[in-house]
Design a protein around this nucleic acid. Structure first.
Length: 475
RNA sequence: GGCCCCAUCGUCUAACGGUUAGGACGCCAGGUUCUCAACCUGGUAAUCAGGGUUCGAUUCCCUGUGGGGUCACCA
């Protein structure tokens, strides 16, 4: 059997899109599952939209999430002769022709057709130019494009691994351009020529390519290439069901990385958009995805990119990593540092404190502020809703006394909690009379990690100072 | 508008003719508890509509409706 070869072929016109990530991931998974090859190819045939370095950034972002090309990354702009040759061949076979129509004329024709409520379509003005006319035009320095000649009496049938049989009448197709006047190929030509040249077995791409699928089939046939398996992926959608786009939220993978979403959660979540494992498993590490991935389980309907579920995945992964406390935790710590600014050295402790309370690492900066800089708070806040002024005052004073007696070397939440519980029992107070004011004293907040955790984090000196401050407020 | 594709809880999805239509996120309620988070328990909520085919349709077929994609010398 032929070796499985897939490719991800972005054009360097911007950053990596979430949808692009999903496409790249599925291609990658399918190749790896079959012990095949995954290839990245840069489709830089549009010199007008080209963005310098975008190709490298695309490659870098993919590498960050673990998706790497098995062969050297090639650029289509380096391979122009290949497309030229294919184009020549099609012209020679009378399956393509040179077109000298100016953009102005094309615009006019299109405008006219729209006015008459016709479908905009090239009018084949140059289809039957004589050899003499063509030579004359070229000699006069006239620019031309090469158009594919659509067999308009044919019905083109395509087979897709996800959508099944797709058929369309030739007459509904336009004589599309395959070679631009600057000798660069269009997507249609370059894509087909390269996929054939690189012996791609599965063309995995977004559903937005469906309309041009028949064109590609026609080129394959005209060039006498074997057809690869086509796999069109359902679209990723905005909450309003339109194609996932900027303006309704972030779509760049880098944006999510910057906000402190983990690679694991991004990959895991995106893998489950338009694909399912056929059972209830939700958590997948990359190797499990490779093992379980299958084309049959790809869905047809578009999938809304739902940030709340991504948040859940991310929160789960953060908790798991902290719990496991291994090498990945060390990585998470250094990843966390950049969100803490000057408090980066406390990253590990901050993570331990907030790891189960955040959706993404970017939340950490804001959430942990009070640890380093006690906010102002109202003294009323110190009194627990089921307590009163006197009991609160008694409680926190007792706390101060106990805490003062705990030695620096024993300053940890277990010791602290045990001592406090002790005194609560002895004095017949309720936990709220003492834990609550301690929390507020330490945080200035009503919602926070537990007092024990906070006291430990702050250290004896800072902790006692905050407690004293609270007592002062009450007196 | 032409062409193409799609259609199960709000969202991601399972059920390859027979299920009380399942799971997850979210949301709600309760438990735990000094608060929040986590955790545990429970609940909420869906087969777009109408026709067929069939003993039986979420599932197959048709029509309608709805949504989306695409109609460039962009990919």
């Amino acid at each position: 059997m032929e070796k499985i070869r897939t490719r991800f072929a972005p054009s360097p016109t911007g950053y990596l899109h979430i949808g692009g990530l999903r496409t790249a991931l599925f291609s990658y998974l399918w190749a790896k599952k079959n012990k095949g090859e995954f290839i990245i190819r840069i489709e830089d045939t549009d010199r007008e939209r080209y963005i310098a370095n975008a190709d490298q950034e695309l490659i870098d972002t993919l590498a960050k999430v673990g998706i790497v090309s098995d062969v050297e990354v090639k650029h289509q702009s380096d391979r122009l002769s290949l497309y030229q040759k294919a184009s020549d061949k099609l012209i020679n076979n009378n399956q393509a022709y040179k077109c000298f129509c100016s953009p102005e004329r094309l615009d006019k024709v299109r405008e006219e057709q729209q006015k008459n409520k016709q479908v905009p379509k090239y009018d084949r003005h140059c289809l039957n130019l004589s050899k003499e006319e063509i030579d004359k035009n070229i000699q006069a320095g006239q620019k031309f494009v090469v158009r594919f000649k659509i067999p308009d009496d044919e019905i083109i049938v395509g087979q897709d691994a996800v959508y099944g049989k797709i058929s369309i009448k030739g007459q509904d197709l336009d004589d599309f351009v395959i070679l631009k006047s600057n000798k660069f190929p269009t997507y249609h030509l370059a894509n087909v020529v390269d996929d054939h040249d690189m012996r791609i077995s599965h063309v995995i791409r977004g559903e937005e390519w469906m309309p041009s699928f028949p064109k590609h089939i026609l080129i394959y046939k005209a060039l006498k290439y074997n057809l690869p398996t086509f796999v069109h992926l359902p679209l990723l959608l905005n909450p309003d069901k339109s194609k996932l786009s900027k303006r309704q939220g972030d779509v760049a993978v880098e944006d999510y990385l910057k906000k402190g979403y983990l690679i694991e959660s991004l990959i895991n979540y995106v893998a489950l958009l338009g694909w399912n494992p056929g059972n209830d498993q939700e958590f997948f590490m990359i190797n499990e995805l490779i093992k379980e991935f299958s084309l049959e389980k790809i869905n047809k309907a578009g999938a809304v990119f739902d940030i709340t579920k991504l948040n859940w995945f991310n929160a789960e992964y953060i908790r798991k990593i902290i719990e496991q406390n291994d090498k990945r935790f060390e990585q998470l710590i250094s990843n966390t540092e950049k969100f803490l600014g000057k408090n980066a050295h406390k990253a590990k402790k901050v993570l331990r404190l907030f790891g189960s309370r955040i959706d993404n690492l970017a939340d950490l900066g804001e959430d942990s502020k009070f640890l380093f800089d006690l906010p102002e708070y109202d003294k009323e806040m110190l009194i627990f809703k089921k307590s009163d002024f006197e009991k609160t005052k008694e409680g926190i004073n007792l706390a101060l006394g106990i805490l003062g007696k705990i030695h620096h070397s024993e300053w940890d939440q277990d010791t602290i909690n045990n001592s406090i519980k002790d005194i609560i029992a002895k004095r017949n107070l309720s936990p709220g009379d003492i834990f609550w004011p301690l929390r507020v004293a330490c945080s200035g907040l009503e919602r926070s990690p537990s007092p024990g955790e906070l006291l430990e984090f702050l250290g004896k000196e800072e902790a006692l100072s905050r407690v004293k401050k609270a007592i002062k407020k009450l007196s």
